[in-house]
């Protein structure tokens, strides 16, 4: 019983911290609106370009504040539907790294060589070991992409 309650309290704390993060984001962006250029009244037509973003940020801040308040107040039973979350597996971060590496590699070695490295790379990372299947499908896909983007659409790819 006590461990369950603890985990619930943990969920609430996550929600609370989340709300604080949203509030901080809204406040920071509100600060950024002060850097916008002021325009003469006839161009602004009564509404400065800062007005709308500021209104949204205020709403966002208030929503997050409500959520933070709820997180503090929520009875343990109601939080149950949210449950506890498994941590993000490291594979996700590795996938992101690989994706960024692919985007950086594209302009350096060219799109298709980069794909030839990236596609099997990601598959192996995800636990694929059937080399022949991979070779055939990715070669086929690269051919398809080449036909689509270079031959049909004539996009100047890096």
């Amino acid at each position: 019983m006590s461990t369950r309650e603890e985990s619930l309290r943990k969920t609430d704390r996550t929600l609370f911290l989340e709300s604080i993060a949203v509030m901080a984001f809204a406040a920071t962006m509100y600060g950024v609106t002060h850097t916008f250029r002021e325009v003469p009244p006839i161009l602004a037509q009564g509404i400065q370009p800062t007005a709308f973003p500021r209104a949204i940020l205020i709403i966002m801040f208030l929503l997050a504040a409500t959520q933070a308040f709820q997180a503090l107040k929520r009875p343990a039973t109601e939080a149950s539907s949210f449950g506890k979350k498994k941590p993000v597996p490291p594979l996700v971060f590795l996938t992101i790294v690989l994706l960024i590496a692919f985007a950086m590699l594209m302009p350096i070695v060219g799109t298709f060589p980069a794909m030839a490295v990236f596609l099997p790379g990601l598959a192996v990372l995800w636990g694929e070991r059937r080399w022949i299947l991979m070779g055939l499908s990715f070669a086929g896909f690269i051919g398809f992409a080449y036909g689509l983007f270079v031959l049909i659409m004539q996009v100047p790819l890096p």
């Binding site: 994706l99 692919f102 985007a103 594209m106 302009p107 799109t111 794909m115 990236f118 596609l119 099997p120 990601l122 598959a123 995800w126 636990g127 694929e128 299947l133 991979m134 499908s137 990715f138 896909f141 992409a145 983007f149 659409m153 996009v155 100047p156 790819l157 890096p158």
Partner: peptide
């Protein structure tokens, strides 16, 4: 297998995103 499908999907997404304005 997802291990074959998704690398292809995301590569297609990258090329598609690039091709609109040819911008990294």
């Amino acid at each position: 297998p997802t291990t074959i499908l998704w690398p292809c999907v995301i590569a297609l997404a990258c090329l598609g995103a690039y091709s609109l304005q040819q911008s990294m």
